[in-house]
Amino acid sequence: MLEIQDLHVRVDGKEILKGLTLSVPTGEVHAVMGPNGSGKSTLSYTLAGREGYEIVSGKILFNGEDLAPLSSDARAARGVFLAMQYPVEIPGVTTINFLKTALNAQRRARNESELDALRVLKLVREKAKALNVPEEMLRRALNVGFSGGEKKRLEVLQMSLFEPKLAVLDETDSGLDIDALRMIAESVNAMRGPSRTMLVITHYQRLLTYIVPNRIHVLASGRIVKSGGPELALVLEEKGYEHLIGEPA
């Protein structure tokens, strides 16, 4: 269960989230939709604990635990995963080595035994197959020279590899063609389950026709201004955000 209570977040001295309240019960998938500049990325970075995203007031509770004091890596070890809108390039670090390092760092933090290189490779190969990620990509430097679609597929691959308890997908559909979108949605849907909470952050409803959420929340000017069922996406598609933002929540 993810509970965000009256969250105020400041970035570079400017308040971006202004009293955001949201709760996602365990096992559900919720979507946060909103126009550009509404605070979508700030929400995802704040959940992942990026430095510079200062929580002024309010709380983020995940399964009852306050995430605020936890560093980003500690959150990852507790099962928080953010699939980023712009995955970062790290020259010279092969993708497979990165995956192994991350997986074992998380396992170590949870007092689980580390997996050897062969075991990790086997595991990654399995996941890679489902996402059509070629073996050759795993040997290339992390995200370096990857196409937009390749980067996004790698994000979802990581999600299925780390098996997070809370997965936040930030604009995962951007830059994808329809086939890639379908494939990624399939992988995400396959991961839905009673013990996993997911938050899909998106500007367009396109992704939500493939990943149908339990609920949709509309974010505008740093607050949730409307919540509703999956049908809300269609309303937004038809009438746009302006129509909603004018109304009180």
Binding site: S72, D73, A76, M84, P87, A102, Q106
Partner: peptide
């Protein structure tokens, strides 16, 4: 880069 690694659980 640092944040990306941290968010994947790497200290």
């Amino acid at each position: 880069q640092l944040f990306y690694c941290l968010s994947r659980g790497i200290g």
